Simulated scan of single mutants.
Amino acid sequence: MFGDMMGMMGKLKEAQQKVEATKKRLDTVTLEETSPEGLVQVNITANREVKEIKIDDSLLQDKEQLEDYLVLTVNKAIEKATRVNETELAAVAKEGMPNIPGMDSLFK
């Protein structure tokens, strides 16, 4: 019984280390989102840190339009980064989890 418990604890610790390593790796994964007309481009990491925003000069004349494009494009970039982040972390967590009856449905 205690051997099984120690084995599970070891697997949980290993899974936690893999999750932390994946989080660090996701800092290096850069995603790009561009507005429909290509006037705003946002580069963001898979950990949802905005790295760069490029704005077409034509938007500098209309503050309200620029704000709208920024909000739209940044939100889409965050959604994309969140999907990548959650998919990667869920895969690592599921891979490292010990086989505990009833827990498998939590990671589907």
Rank of each mutant, 00 (worst) to 15 (best):
E49K: 11
D56N: 11
A46I: 09
E49W: 01
K54H: 10
L26V: 13
L12I: 12
K18L: 11
T73L: 00
R25M: 14
A21H: 07
K18N: 14
R48P: 00
R25H: 13
L12T: 12
L12M: 15
D57L: 00
T73E: 04
Q61P: 01
E67I: 06
K76C: 06
M9A: 14
V50D: 06
N75R: 10
D56H: 13
E67H: 06
E64V: 12
I55E: 02
S35T: 03
K76R: 14
L26G: 11
V19E: 11
V40K: 06
M9S: 08
N47H: 02
D68N: 15
S35C: 09
T73A: 02
D57F: 08
V19A: 13
L39G: 01
K13T: 05
P36W: 02
S35R: 01
V29K: 07
L60Q: 13
Q61N: 10
K11R: 10
V74C: 04
V42W: 05
L66G: 06
Q61G: 11
S58G: 08
K23W: 02
E67F: 09
A15V: 11
T34Y: 03
E49R: 11
E49F: 04
G10T: 04
R25K: 14
E64D: 14
K13L: 07
E37Q: 14
E52P: 00
K24C: 08
T30M: 13
E49L: 04
E64S: 10
N75Y: 05
T22E: 13
V42Q: 06
E33I: 07
L31G: 09
D56T: 01
T22D: 01
V29G: 03
T73Y: 00
V42G: 02
E37R: 14
L72T: 15
K51N: 15
V71N: 10
E49N: 12
D62V: 04
I55R: 04
I55T: 01
G10A: 07
Y69A: 03
E37C: 10
K24W: 11
Q17A: 12
E33A: 14
T22L: 05
K63N: 15
A15T: 12
T28R: 15
T73G: 03
Q16P: 00
G38K: 08
V42T: 00
V50M: 06
A46K: 09
Y69P: 01
Q61A: 08
G38I: 07
T30E: 13
K11D: 10
E32G: 04
G10W: 04
V50Y: 01
K24G: 11
T34N: 02
A46Q: 07
I44R: 03
E14Y: 07
K23I: 08
S58F: 08
M9P: 01
L31A: 06
E14W: 04
K11A: 10
I55W: 04
D27M: 01
N75M: 05
D57P: 03
K54N: 11
K13C: 00
V29P: 03
K76I: 05
V74W: 03
K23T: 01
L66C: 02
Q41V: 12
L39A: 05
K13P: 00
A46C: 08
R48E: 03
Q41D: 06
K76L: 02
Y69D: 03
E32T: 07
T34D: 05
L26I: 11
E67S: 08
